[in-house]
């Protein structure tokens, strides 16, 4: 793998793997943050006395 560094077209290989990692990481973080935000919203509603029909454990 060390032979890759400085090799011809190294920038293209790095860009392809870099953009893949960045997009997939951003997508994962976005999904996790949305989950946390939704749980917070549901907690706030329950504190306000609004009960859910079904209470998830997730």
């Amino acid at each position: 793998m060390s032979a890759l560094f400085g090799a011809k077209y190294f920038g293209f290989i790095l860009s392809a793997f870099g953009i893949t990692a960045a997009v997939l990481l951003a997508l994962t973080i976005w999904i996790v943050l949305v989950h946390k935000s939704r749980l917070r919203q549901l907690d706030a509603l329950e504190k306000a006395g609004i009960k859910r029909a079904s209470r998830p454990n997730g």
Binding site: I31, H35, R38, L42, K51, R52
Partner: peptide
């Protein structure tokens, strides 16, 4: 990875619908 993210996203969507239902219930009240 797709299955993992999809299950997580489905969980978010179910929660979104539960929030919407709860908010409507609150508004009716």
């Amino acid at each position: 990875l797709f299955f993992t993210l999809h299950l997580m996203a489905m969980r978010n969507e179910i929660l979104r619908r539960q929030i919407r239902t709860a908010q409507r219930k609150a508004a009716r009240g």
